[in-house]
Amino acid sequence: MDLKKYEKLAALNLSEEEEKRISKDLTDIINYFEILKEVNTDNVEPLVYTKGAKLFMRKDEKQKSLNKESLKKNRELFNGNFYKVKKIIGD
């Protein structure tokens, strides 16, 4: 597994030690799926959602948005009228 690739996709910067630990964890997880693979699922429909879960929809009606004063409380993130976000790799 190419851990570097996933580090990049997840915008993470891991130390060597963290890489070692996570690499082991991920390998264990993948190995666990190898065990699951042994089960015969020939006649089983893939289950993606909890059985019977129903999608609820809402009417196209306006609800109150957040008030600007409450947004401004977060000085780290909010600057003037805008959210301020550190540039991300690849940007």
Partner: peptide, 29 residues
């Protein structure tokens, strides 16, 4: 339920859902 109005003052039509705040859940229009 935030408004889709074009040209509104920046960040006035926002809420936990469209700001992606943790725990907020989407409900389809």
């Amino acid at each position: 339920g935030c408004s889709t109005e074009f040209g509104a003052e920046p960040n006035t039509n926002v809420c936990p859902v469209c700001l992606g705040l943790p725990g907020a859940l989407p409900v389809l229009n």
